[in-house]
Structures are given as structure tokens and as C-alpha cells.
């Protein structure tokens, strides 16, 4: 059981690392949203799933309820994270930000 928990946590930490490095390295605002919106979502889902599994080690009604709450967090993040990403990209489009592209860079 503990091996599965450690696997889930390391899997999530791996994706969180990718998200953090991607936010630093990507060239413009729109492409930064890709690691921020998606790698973080998968990271939070897998890490919270691992913690919920660890919580079920001492099985009782109380820990089951806590694990259900953690699953509720996963479900909520699964719904809300794309919405938040979409909201940010919508603000960028309405503000008129141009997106970074290769052609634009060649002209300069």
C-alpha cells in the first residue's frame, strides 16, 4: 500500500516540477498557460489521490469520510481548473495581446 502511495506522490511531484519549470521557460503568456493549467491539474489529482489512499491505511468511518472529502477536492479541481485557464486566456484575448510565433520572430 505504501509503495502505491509513494508512487502516486512521486508521479505528482514530477508533473509539478514540469509545471514550475515550464512557467519559467516558456516564451509568452499563452504558452505559459499550457504547463500552468494542465501539468498542475494532473499533479494535484495524482498527489491528492495518493494522500487519500494513505489516509485509508487505518480504515474506519472517520478516515473514509476524510478520503471522500479528498476525492471531492479532485472532482472540484477537475472541473474548475480548465475554467480558470479559459478565463485567463479570455482576458488575454480581450486585452489584445499577440501570441508569440516563429514567423514574428524571424521578421525581427
Amino acid at each position: 500500500m505504501n509503495i502505491l502511495v509513494i508512487f502516486f506522490l512521486l508521479f505528482g511531484l514530477f508533473f509539478f516540477t514540469g509545471g514550475a519549470v515550464g512557467i519559467i521557460r516558456m516564451p509568452d503568456f499563452y504558452s505559459r498557460l499550457h504547463p500552468a493549467g494542465k501539468l498542475d491539474t494532473l499533479g494535484i489529482m495524482s498527489m491528492v489521490l495518493g494522500l487519500a489512499l494513505y489516509n485509508l491505511n487505518h480504515f474506519s468511518a472517520g478516515t473514509l469520510l476524510l478520503s471522500i472529502k479528498m476525492i471531492l477536492i479532485i472532482f472540484f479541481v477537475f472541473l474548475s481548473s480548465p475554467t480558470a485557464t479559459h478565463s485567463i486566456v479570455d482576458a488575454g484575448i480581450r486585452a489584445g495581446l499577440r501570441h508569440w510565433s516563429k514567423e514574428q520572430r524571424r521578421v525581427e
Binding site: 503568456f29 505559459r32 498542475d40 499533479g43 485567463i88
Partner: peptide
């Protein structure tokens, strides 16, 4: 400003875990 917003969002999602 929107870049800062992305940073704040990423910090928030790590804080939950």
C-alpha cells in the same frame, strides 16, 4: 499582469496539496 495571475494560480494549486 496576466503572467502574475498565472504565477498566483500555480502557487494556489500547490498550496492545497
Amino acid at each position: 499582469v496576466l503572467d502574475r495571475l498565472i504565477g498566483v494560480n500555480a502557487i494556489g494549486s500547490k498550496t492545497v496539496v
